[in-house]
Amino acid sequence: MILLPRGNPVKENVNPGKVNLPDALDKLRQGKFTGYLRFDFSEGTGIFIFQAGRLISSLFETGRENLIAYDAIARTFHEALKGDGRLDIYRLSPELAFSIHALLHGEMLHRGQDLQLIDIRSLLTRMRDEQRSGCLRIYSQNHIALIFYRDGKPLGFFHDGSTDIETTADTSMSVAREAGAKVDVLITRGDVEKSLADLMETANIAGLWNKSVGERQRQREEQENAASRTLEMREGERRQKTLALFQKTAQQHLGKIGVSLVDKEFDRLKLNGVSLGEAQLTGFYDNLTKAAKLVAGPSKIELMLDEMKKGARSLLKGP
């Protein structure tokens, strides 16, 4: 689970499977958007960070692995096309957007430290003394607050609903005081800001998208084929069971030749892709009656057909 402040919402709770993502990204680029896109899927979370229309960072995190850059974009596209994800877009200031990047890609110095067991003030002092750049992420069950540092100096505070770095620590400190609050310490080394390339410029976004669309299409076809095969197998099973029932009933009433008559008339059933149902058996019953008249009387045939219809009804009433 990636813990991030929500920022200023631009769009929330959008199904990314219904969006042409390359087009959407291009629009954000054209609009010089600054902020981030958060994709939540059952398989993981994807984050795309924009700074003044440049896609400066992407991350896809699952419980087992973290993908970055093109791999993250491709995986996000792949998951989005499954159609059961959620997309939220938040606007941020340019500086904060970069700080989010630092937060996501920084080195984890401490993880999940219980704030009841740690002296937050001495931790802040240490950040200052060691001239660290990075982020303290303070979170409780319901709230999250971030304190960004650069070279030991606090850049500001960020919390749920804020669009920019704030100068007061009130909210952050109030989160720290909540029951069960924890802190992560992430640091960045060197000046990476200048080295960030625009991923939309260096990556073939449309190509990645098309590849994902192709894969998804292939998967869907495979699923459909598998479903079709399952359906065919089930249908075959239903036919076999029905035939076996008819053969047994015919054997009881007409003997060996009755079984042969059932086999013959069952073979002649023309289903044309329709699954076997009572309606399709009407012709079978008629033909069997006609043929059975040569070896048995109407009362015996009627008795046999009644048993067959009763058995078939219970066999075929399923989907």
């Binding site: 007409l254 003997g255 030749i257 048995a296």
Partner: peptide
Amino acid sequence: LNVKDTPIS
């Protein structure tokens, strides 16, 4: 012989 187990046999 072919129909010996039918009613008509």
